[in-house]
Amino acid sequence: MSATKTISFTLNGAPVTADVKPHHNLVELLQGQFGLTGARETCGQGLCGCCTVIVDGLAVSGCLYLAAFLNDGAEVSTVEGLDTPAKLSPVQEAFVETAAFQCGYCTPGFILMVGQLLDEHPDPDDDQIKHYLTGNLCRCATYPQVMEAVRLAAKKRKAGAAA
C-alpha cells in the first residue's frame, strides 16, 4: 500500500487539513473527507466538466488531478463555496432564472466555469462563451439556456459591481 501524506490548504476560504493517498484524485478527497459532492466524476477523462474544481484560481478537472498535487497553502474552491444562506451568486441566480439546467448533474461544473469565463471576459460574445465552455458537456443538452444564463450573469455581475 502507498504512503499517506498530510496537506494543509484552504477549502472555500476555511483552513483545512487532509490525509491524502497518492492514488486519490481531488474528487475523492472532496467527497470522502469533506462531504462535498458538487464535484462529481462522470467521464473520468476531463472531458465532461462535471468534476470541475478551482485550484489556486485555475479550473482543473478533479477526476484527473491527484489530490497529492495540492501544495500546502493551496486555495481550493468548489461550487459549495459560492452561495450564502441568504444569497446565491450572480451566476447561480442566472442559471435559475433562465432554467439553464435539467438533471443538474453537470450544473456545478458549468457554474464554476462560467465564473472563470466572466473573470476573464466580463462581457463575452457568443464565440467566447462557446469556446470557453467547449469542455463542459450537458447530456440533457441545455446549451441554448446556458448561453442565456451567461449573458444574464454578465449583466448581473456588472450591475453588482456598479452598485
Binding site: 462529481r40 447561480q92 435559475v96 443538474g104
Partner: peptide, 11 residues
C-alpha cells in the same frame, strides 16, 4: 433549483 445550482442536490 437552489439545490441543483449549489451542488447540494442528492444523487
Amino acid at each position: 433549483s437552489r439545490e441543483k445550482v449549489t451542488g447540494r442536490a442528492e444523487y
